[in-house]
């Protein structure tokens, strides 16, 4: 135990640097995946058939590919086409795209779950589609989609470790580097695991509270 604490004190500063990168990658790719996901969901529900078909093909292709393969493709193959990205950029974009498909399905399910009658009522008072989406459908779709949305955030926090495979110096990567130079596997990975829990458990707890607060207004 004494050894563990001693080593922890040496390793923690480096791991914490990694944790900062982990949070950055997670936050940025979460925002990116939300934006692309919302766009895909709206296209998927469009009245124009070719747009619908295009959106669902994109979603299917993204869902059919392993995330690591998408990351490798963006980081190692795109430079051949003249697109040079840093590892960090490639990681954020890769995770963002990979998760946008799941986000799109969450959003679509939320939008479809809003009662069709409310859409008609909004039309009947003269609302055009963009206003109707903004004022009536999306706020309620968001409430419905919030639990899976939060879940996605937690999954992305964990899956941000995948960008270690393209050399982004996030927490898992830093752990690997320390472990391979010190051979203190148990200490290093125990610390890494604890640090992930330290981030994910409060997140889960906060999301629970948020869900409860938001559904409070509607149900009595």
């Amino acid at each position: 135990m004494h050894d563990f604490l001693q080593q922890a004190r040496d390793f923690l500063p480096i791991l914490l640097q990694g944790a900062v990168v982990t949070v950055q990658v997670t936050a940025l790719s979460f925002i990116l995946s939300s934006l692309i996901g919302l766009a895909l969901a709206l296209l998927r529900l469009s009245r124009v058939a070719p747009l619908r078909a295009a959106a669902s093909s994109v979603i299917n292709v993204i869902r059919g590919l392993p995330i690591i393969v998408q990351l490798f493709y963006i980081y190692f193959v795109l430079p051949d086409f003249g697109v040079q990205l840093t590892a960090f950029q490639a990681g954020v974009i890769g995770l963002g795209i990979a998760y946008s498909a799941y986000q799109a399905e969450n959003f679509r399910a939320g939008i479809e779950a809003v009662d069709e009658g409310q859409r008609e009522a909004a039309q009947a008072i003269g609302m055009r589609t963009p206003l109707l989406m903004r004022r009536v459908i999306l706020p309620q779709a968001f409430r419905i989609a919030l639990p899976p949305y939060g879940n996605t955030l937690v999954m992305m926090l964990k899956d941000s470790s995948l960008v270690s495979t393209i050399t982004v110096a996030e927490m898992t990567r830093q752990g690997q580097l320390i472990a391979s130079s010190t051979f203190q596997n148990m200490t290093v990975y125990t610390l890494v695991a604890l640090l992930y829990l330290l981030m994910s458990l409060p997140l889960v707890w906060m999301l629970k509270r948020l869900e409860r607060r938001i559904s409070g207004g509607r149900k009595q």
Binding site: E120, A121, G126
Partner: peptide, 19 residues
Amino acid sequence: HRLRGSLGMVFQRFNLFGH
């Protein structure tokens, strides 16, 4: 949309905005 603004409609299932 403009026309609908001058025609009020009431539905069987009320269709109030729940939020």
